[in-house]
Structure formats: C-alpha cells, structure tokens
Amino acid sequence: MSALGVVGGVLQPLLVAAGAPLLVGVTRQVRARLEGRAGPGVGQPWRDLRKLLRKEAITPRGTSEVFRLAPLVLVATTLVVAVVVPFVTTDSALDPVADLFAVVALLALGTVAVALAGLDTGTAFGGMGASREMTIIALVEPTLLVAIFALSVRVGSTNLASIVASTLHDPARVISPVSLLAAVALIVVIVAETGRLPVDNPATHLELTMVHEAMVLEYAGPDLALVELASAMRLTVFLGLLANLFLPWGIATTATALAVLGGVLAFALKVTLLGAVLAVGEVFLAKLRLFRVPELLAGSFLLALLAVAASFFLA
C-alpha cells in the first residue's frame, strides 16, 4: 500500500460524503434556474440532512432489523466503493482487493439492501418499488458488465487503477470507437442506476411513477438522512467513475500536497460539470413509461456489445 493509496483512501470517502449533497444542490439549482425559479441554493441538501438528523428515529410497526440496517449497508457500500475507485489518486488503498466487477457488485448490494427494506415494510408501495428496482437492476447488469469488458480489453485487466493509468498514458484512446460506445452505454446505465430521468424521477411522489422513492417511503429522521445521503453519494460515485474512466486528467499520480490538491479540484470540477449537464438534460426530458425502460436499456446493451466488437475488430 503506497502513501498515495493511503491519502486517496482517506480523502476520497470524505470528499464524496461531504461533496455529494452539494452536487445534488447544484443539480437542483441548475434545474430551478432553467425552469425560471430562484431555487433553494446549493447548500439546501445539507440543511435538509441536518434537520433530519436532529429528528427522532422512527420504526414503522412490523418492520425488522433488515429495515433498520439497510440505510447503513447502503451508505457503507458506497463508501467502500469511494475508497476503491481512483477518484483523486491513481493508487487505491484497497487496490488488489476489488476491481471493477467488485465495485459494480458492491453498488448492487446496496440496492438489494434497500429493496429488501422496501419489502420488509409490507406495504404495497414498498413492494412496488422493490419489484421495479430489481427489474431495472437485472436489466442493467448485462450492459454494465459488457461495457466493463470493452474497457478492460485494451488494458488486459479489470483493475480500475490500471484502466485509469492506461488512459493517462495514451490519451488518444479516449476518442476511439470503443471508448465512445462504452461511454454512451455507461451513461444510460448510470442514469438508470442512480434513478434519474428518464428512468426514474427523484422528485416525484406519485405512486404510478415512483421507483426509488417508493422503497424508502417509510424512512424518517436519521434513517432517511442516511438514505438521502447515500443516494447523493451514489450519484457522485457513478459520475466520478464515468469521469475518471474516460477523462482521468488531473488525477494525482504522486503523493505531493500540490498533486493531491489538484486531484481533489479536478474531481470536484468534473463531477460538478457532469452533474450540471445531467440537470440540463433532465429539464428537457420526460419520464419514460416503466415498460419502455427495457427498450432504452436494450439499446445501451447493444452499444456495449458493439464496443466489445470494435475492440476486437478495429484493434
């Protein structure tokens, strides 16, 4: 474990946890401005979290430990991912421990925990959200893994640090067909996994359209704070993953203070930009009907498959 890895391992989860609500604040603010509203300001998600943390914890009648543990598991999986993935530094504290497959599986584990919590409440809303979320997860998986396959071919490894390092060495690869196709496929997947438009609307509380919100309907107080924080962190992690898999520039390769500071700033900038682009996109998009979502995901799967084909036939 190198010094750089340790710095990254400590800095990245803190940065993700602290910055994620701000990122959500930025996306909401951008949206509000484009829709002609003043908006609550970038710090509003943090203020909401503070308010929720001060409230008493509520256990809905008939729920079990699964319901109480799920928010902790959700946040923990995201934090572990934030340690593993090279966001700020190319070395990771847990480098040989987990690769891109493990990262994807860890994020899925968090989703599964929340889905079980939704089923545990025994309400129709909880079951509905869990059922829809699991359908989407099952369909997203092929795209995700085939896209990872496409990215790993040129490196010969699914290790994240190797993929990032190889892009740093050979910048021309970013505009190769493999990268572009895989990037588009991954963007669709990220939109689906983080529950953004057009797959899910994070601002809705209408039963016909809810996916993520339906599962977490029964949460209140500090538990809800954890769930909200986790969904913001997942957005950050996914956008960070997208940024650094395809545009890793600025990431710290040495453990000097200047390089690490540059890494932090570059990461914050990239993720904020991507978040703003996402918000702009959402203004112009309506939510898809749930049963049109598979078509979108099938399209992204095709792109991922083309990316792998390109990596072989155009290499």
Binding site: E56, A57, I58
Partner: peptide, 9 residues
Amino acid sequence: RARRTARLW
C-alpha cells in the same frame, strides 16, 4: 431521542 414505533403509511 429513543426510537419510536409508528403506524405504517
């Protein structure tokens, strides 16, 4: 504050 049980929605 202590955990409180409540009705489901």
